[in-house]
């Protein structure tokens, strides 16, 4: 089953590649074992499963925020702990991670800035790092345009100067999505990014992200506790089960479910 699916989608190298990865806590307690997972450009993969099973930890591991206990995690051609190139990875955490006291535009510009390549080459590593950092403080007009486009796509143009703390939960979620779209990453990691949204907002967010992924050959890995919703949007659905869904299994495994 899986082979057919992959063959249909394969365009180039996988964006995410996990080989024999064990994910868990710092004290060495394993949550999930993943023998093999590859995500290809243009693919939308959803991970579902009961709460506390390690879905978010898997996402954080791919984002490079947590180390895996063992195995190799490769993202955008670089093996973690080496980070992917600047702006290649977009991450929408469940708590969104927006700068609450700053405006919508400021937040989206952070993403657009991350997507901009600014490279001064210098033989001294530190001078190069420092000058690039200083240069990145000055956003280009292109970044500004990208931010405006993303904000418009998320239908937030009237809120462009509003601080985040004055927005509703759904509007904040749209800002986080706009930030990722303005960044134009090769891989989007989204943690329950459709939860607590009304139908109309969900439609806007989902359409924005899916269109971006399909048009730009990016990949989307989304964690979703609602299996039926995951089925509607994903090309592939992986379910992490610790025995709560299928009582016959003995260890935490990830199974691929037909969509």
């Amino acid at each position: 089953m899986r082979e057919d699916n992959v063959v249909a989608k394969v365009i180039g190298k996988p964006i995410v590649k996990l080989i024999d990865v064990e994910i868990g806590y710092k004290n060495g307690e394993t949550l999930v074992k993943i023998p093999d997972l590859e995500i290809f450009p243009g693919e939308i993969v959803a991970i579902a499963g009961p709460s506390g099973v390690g879905k978010t930890t898997l996402l954080r591991t791919i984002a490079g925020l947590v180390r895996s206990i063992s195995g190799t995690v490769e993202v955008c051609g670089r093996v973690v702990p080496h980070r992917p190139k600047r702006g290649k990875l977009g991450y929408i955490p469940q708590k969104l991670g927006l700068v609450r006291h700053a405006s919508v535009m400021h937040n989206v510009m952070l993403g657009a800035n991350a997507g901009q390549k600014k490279e001064i080459i210098h033989r001294n590593k530190y001078i190069q790092m420092f000058s690039n950092s200083v240069l990145s403080l000055f956003p280009s007009t292109k970044a500004k345009r990208k931010s405006r486009d993303a904000i418009e796509k998320m239908r937030l143009t009237d809120k462009i100067g509003e601080p985040i703390r004055r927005l509703s939960g759904g509007q904040q979620r749209r800002v986080a999505t706009a930030r990722t779209l303005a960044q134009e990453p090769a891989l989007i990691l989204a943690d329950e990014f459709l939860s607590e949204l009304d139908d109309e907002t969900m439609e806007t967010v989902l359409r924005g992200v899916v269109t971006y992924v399909k048009n730009n050959n990016a990949a989307l890995l989304v964690v979703e506790h609602d299996v039926s919703r995951a089925k509607t949007m994903a090309d592939r659905l992986l379910v992490i089960d610790d025995g709560r869904i299928n009582p016959f299994i003995t260890e935490v495994t990830m199974i691929e479910v037909k969509v």
Binding site: G64, Y91, P93, V99, H101, L110, A114, M129
Partner: peptide, 27 residues
């Protein structure tokens, strides 16, 4: 969380300080 998402986006430390930390802590 804002620091983590900025870090995973690949923003530099100076950008994180000026773009995330200072506006968030301004008050």
């Amino acid at each position: 969380v804002p620091l983590e998402s900025a870090r995973s986006m690949g923003l530099s430390k100076i950008e994180i300080a000026t773009g995330v930390v200072i506006p968030e802590m301004a008050n």
